[in-house]
Design a protein around this nucleic acid. Structure first.
Length: 152
DNA sequence: GCCAACGTTGGC
DNA sequence: GCCAACGTTGGC
């Protein structure tokens, strides 16, 4: 039995929001173009829970929960010339970018605000919510995750 | 709109 | 392989 892990992933609600995910049910978490974030996705397992953080909006914070349901999927947007995530360096015989599939679990009644997260999170976890940081995925410690689950 | 803090790029 | 310049992010 693989231990279930927790993650935090961020998205701008203008690009993809918790409401869109609620409506879609499942989605590919594609468009990740940061090696560290990609490598974190490669460490995910099916069943892992993911906190959904809305960035670059008012107010920023955790707005819901999702679950990883599929792994190691080649990110189709890297080959799509019309996509803003198109990567001319990536070749189909050796793709650079991959992603996971997630499903909607719940939307928070009250978002967990950035000031709250700054108190709860370790330095590593804070990286993802830190101003200017392009890292959009981080693992969340089990104890912190339990607190977040109660607040969500 | 400002600008600090990042990751990436490219000249050497 | 260094590192300055550059572009992007995102809270404020």
């Amino acid at each position: 039995m693989i231990e279930e892990k927790f993650w935090l992933m961020k998205s701008e609600p203008d690009a993809y929001s918790i409401d869109t995910l609620k409506n879609d049910g499942v989605t590919l978490w594609d468009g990740i173009r940061n090696y560290q974030a990609r490598n974190f996705m490669r460490n995910m397992n099916k069943g892992d829970k993911v906190f959904f953080y809305h960035s670059n909006c008012k107010p920023p914070g955790i707005v819901g929960l999702m679950e990883v349901i599929d792994l190691n999927i080649v990110d189709p947007t890297q080959f799509d010339e019309d996509s803003k995530y198109f990567d001319p360096k990536s070749k189909s015989e050796n793709p650079i970018w991959d992603c996971v599939k997630v499903k909607f679990i719940s939307k928070s009644n009250n978002i967990i605000s950035l000031p709250e997260l700054k108190i709860l999170f370790s330095e590593d976890e804070l990286l993802v919510v830190k101003k200017g940081n392009r890292l959009s995925i981080v693992p969340v410690n089990n104890d912190v995750a339990k607190i977040l689950l109660e607040k969500i």
